[in-house]
């Protein structure tokens, strides 16, 4: 595995090095990430990348295929717009973790902040601890699993997708409802946790859209004539 020292490089140079793929077989370790923003952004190769230390906003954002491990905490929007591949945060994540992700998987071993999985369009997002308010806000597709508690307004205005919560629910957002999870679904979720090294098997509550906000419930006279 190749090591690079972030403290001696600009963010652009670090990202260019990560994109260069010259270490593709053995992966790369970025030492001294020191909470730097925008590390590992826009990557698109099947590469293992390890960040030693905390990272700032948008780590692994706009990326696909790569496997990223963050040995520390992550700032806002870790894995935003992730298309494929995986990101694992061994500490906690800030707000908007996995926002708008369309594929791949994001795992936060600790807690995750407000708006976790906001506008998520696909993929899997697993939080080992608690997640903050508006988790799954306007979620469109995919699956969010929170082993601990979630804050207020979970699943607000979600279209599709599902949110599994192991602990308590602060409150449900607009148009979100709790449904019974089937045994098969629970087994699937437990298997996802087992892959991340979580042995517990919480009896998850499943939150989905009631689909009552899908349509305006009335049309204007003129619209009635043409729609």
């Amino acid at each position: 595995m190749v090591d690079i020292d972030a403290s001696q490089m600009t963010t652009r140079d670090i990202n260019l090095r990560l994109k260069s793929n010259s270490f593709s077989n053995n992966g790369i370790t970025v030492k001294n990430s020191q909470g730097r923003h925008n590390l590992g952004v826009g990557l698109s190769s099947n590469t293992e990348i390890k960040f030693e230390g905390n990272v700032g906003y948008f780590c692994g954002g706009l990326s696909s295929q790569c496997q990223i491990v963050i040995q520390g905490n992550a700032g806002w929007a870790v894995g935003d717009n992730l298309m494929s591949g995986s990101i694992a945060v061994e500490g906690n994540a800030g707000a908007s973790a996995g926002s708008t992700m369309r594929g791949g998987s994001l795992f936060v071993r600790g807690n995750s902040g407000a708006r976790t999985g906001i506008s998520m369009k696909g993929g899997h997002l697993v939080v080992g601890g608690d997640s903050g308010f508006m988790t799954g806000f306007m979620m469109q597709k995919g699956r969010i699993v929170v082993c601990g508690n979630v804050g207020e307004a979970v699943g607000d205005s979600m279209y599709e997708g599902e949110i599994f919560v192991g602990g308590t629910i602060g409150s449900l957002g607009s148009d979100a409802i709790v449904q019974d999870a089937s045994e098969d679904e629970l087994i699937e979720v437990w298997e996802m946790l087992a892959k991340e090294g979580i042995a517990e098997r919480p009896k998850f509550k499943k939150i989905v859209s009631a689909k009552k906000l899908y349509h305006f419930d009335s049309l204007e006279r003129l619209e009635k004539n043409v729609i």
């Binding site: 925008n38 906003y57 906001i118």
Partner: peptide, 20 residues
């Protein structure tokens, strides 16, 4: 979804610059 105020916006702009 991933930024709120102007300070966050500046980091978002940098993210897009990094990507491109």
């Amino acid at each position: 979804p991933d930024w709120l105020g102007p300070d966050d916006l500046s980091i978002k702009i940098e993210e897009l610059r990094e990507a491109t």
